[in-house]
Design a protein around this nucleic acid. Sequence first.
DNA 1: ATGACATATGAGATATGA
Length: 259
Amino acid sequence: MRVATWNVNSIKAHFDVVTRWLGEARPDVVCLQEIKCEDQNFPSAAFEELNYGAAVFGQKTYNGVAILSKFPLENIVRGLAGDASDEQSRYIQATVMDGVRSTTVACIYLPNGNPIDSPKYPYKLGWMDRLIAHTKGLLKQEEAFVLAGDYNAIPKAIDAKTPSQWVNDALFLPTTRAKFQELQALGLTDAFRALHPTATNQYTFYDYQAGAWQKENGIRIDHMMLSPQAADRLVAANIEKHVRGWEKPSDHVPFVIEL
DNA sequence: ATGACATATGAGATATGA
C-alpha cells in the first residue's frame, strides 16, 4: 500500500498539480493539508472520478485537512483531543481497509508557531503535547498506524539546506525539536530517515520567495511517523522533489511511502 | 532587512504562511 502526504496550499488553487501527481504516482492513500476550504467546497466528486474516496475536515480560508483513499475509510476522527476550545482544522484520522489488513492513517497539520514571541508558539507546543498524548493511546492498541503530515518541524540540521537561517524560527527551536524527539521516542519510526539515514538535499518545502527552489534552499518538515507494526512493513520512502518544478506548484512537495 | 512570494477574502488592504 502506498501512502502519501502533501501540503497542497489550497486544493482549489492547486487542484491541477494534485491530480497530475495522482495520475503519475498512483498512491492508494493521500493525506492533504492546507486545503483551505470548507467541507462542502472540497472537490470530492472530482476525486471520486479518479477512484478516490475522501474524508474531509475543512475550514474556511485557513488550515483544513483531508484523506483521499482508493480503499474504504472507516472510524473517521475529526480533530485532536485535549482542547475543546481549539477551532482550527488540523487533524483527521481514519482506518484504511485494504482487504488484507487495516492501517490507521492520521493526517496532521501541526501549527507553524511563528512569531515565537506570540501566542502562536505556545499553541504549537500545546498541540504537540496533545499529539503525544493521543499517540500514546494509539500505541496501546499495538496495531499499524501512520502519523502523516506537515509537522512544521525540522528534526535535525541535516534536514535544512541552511540551518543557520532557522535558528530563531519556531520550526527549528530546541524546544520544538525536543518535542518532536519526544514523539519519536514513544517508539515511532521516521519513515524517511529509516531508509535514508544520511541523505542530504532531500527537502519537502521550498519557499516561494527569494528563489528558494532554484537555490535548492529547502527544509524537510513533512514526515511520516510509523508505529512498530507499520515500520515492519516499510519498503520505500520517496520525496517527490520534481513536483516543485511543475507549473503553479504548492510550496510543499509530496512525500510517499510504500508499506 | 519584516521584505520577497503566494493564497483567501472581497473589491483594497490585511492575515497567514515557514
